[in-house]
Each structure stands twice: as C-alpha cells, then as structure tokens.
Amino acid sequence: MEMDKRAEQAVAYKHKDCNCAQAVLLAFAEELGKSEEELRALGSGFGMGMGCTEATCGALCGASIVMGLLNQSGKPTAAIMRDILQEFQEKAGATICKDIKGIETGKMLCSCDDCVRHAVRAAEQHLG
C-alpha cells in the first residue's frame, strides 16, 4: 500500500472512534492478519498516551506493536523502535502525549492526526 494512502487511512480510523494506537494498528490490518475487533482490542489500552496517563504517544505504541509482529529484518525490534522514537520526536517535537498536546505549556507541538501519520510512515519505512 502506498505510504501516504495508509497514513491517511489511519487518520480516517482515528476519526471513526479509534484511539491513536488502534488507528495505526488498523492501517496494517491486512499484513497483521487480524480482524478489526482483535486490533481494536490490542490497541485499546493505549489511548491518550498509554492508559490515559498522557504518557507515551498511543500512535508510537501502535507502531511498536506493528513492528513487533511484522519485523523480519533480523534487527531487534527494540533497536528499530529507538530509531522510530528518534525520528518521531524530530517530526512531532516530543514522544510523550501531554508534551505533544501542550497540556502543561498551552502550546501544541503536533496534532493527533499528524502523530498517527508520522507513526504509520515510520513503521512502513522500517518494515520496507
């Protein structure tokens, strides 16, 4: 699937009653071989920054699950996720939900839609 097409599909899922992690997971449903119900359940605990604690961005959590299930590179998934986290931080300005949303500063660094896009693109890049 074309990278931007998958990223936009993930954003559409985000607007269809999904949290950011679920949206990223659903964008990879075909490759993951899981039903929408299973992927929604798998990502259900990662909304609003993992467990609604405004911690690690849910989109990044979704990308990590995708990488863990689909990584065939021979490189450990944790090492790939370090790279993805760094790339994501450069694009979004942070990796922690409350920092991205500007909860304490009043200055949003990146929209949730763009976080989903960045996470999907990063996962695709590291899978392909």
Rank of each mutant, 00 (worst) to 15 (best):
Q125R: 07
G74L: 07
L42P: 02
I65A: 03
C112D: 02
T77S: 14
M67S: 01
A119W: 00
C20T: 04
A122T: 08
C20D: 03
E54Y: 09
Q72A: 09
L127I: 12
G51C: 05
P76H: 01
Y13E: 14
H126T: 12
R121Q: 10
E36L: 00
N19Q: 09
L25H: 11
H118F: 15
M48T: 14
L26I: 13
G43C: 14
T53F: 03
A27Y: 14
G45C: 03
R117L: 14
V66M: 04
Q72Y: 08
H15Y: 09
A59H: 00
G74P: 06
I100Q: 08
L70M: 01
C18P: 02
A94V: 05
H118R: 08
C112M: 06
G128C: 14
C20K: 02
C110W: 14
M67H: 00
Q72H: 12
F88R: 09
V66S: 03
R40N: 07
T95Y: 12
V11N: 04
D114P: 06
A122I: 10
N71W: 08
G93V: 13
K91N: 05
G45R: 00
E38Q: 05
M81Q: 01
G102W: 04
G128D: 12
N19T: 06
C57L: 07
R117Y: 14
E90R: 11
A79E: 15
E30P: 02
A59R: 00
A21N: 04
C20F: 03
T77F: 08
I80C: 00
A55P: 08
L60E: 03
G58R: 04
A41H: 03
E54C: 08
V11R: 05
E31L: 15
D17Q: 13
S44T: 05
G68N: 10
G106H: 09
A94D: 07
G68C: 11
Q72E: 12
M1T: 15
Q72N: 10
D113N: 13
Q125G: 01
D83Q: 15
E54Q: 10
F46M: 04
S111T: 13
C61I: 01
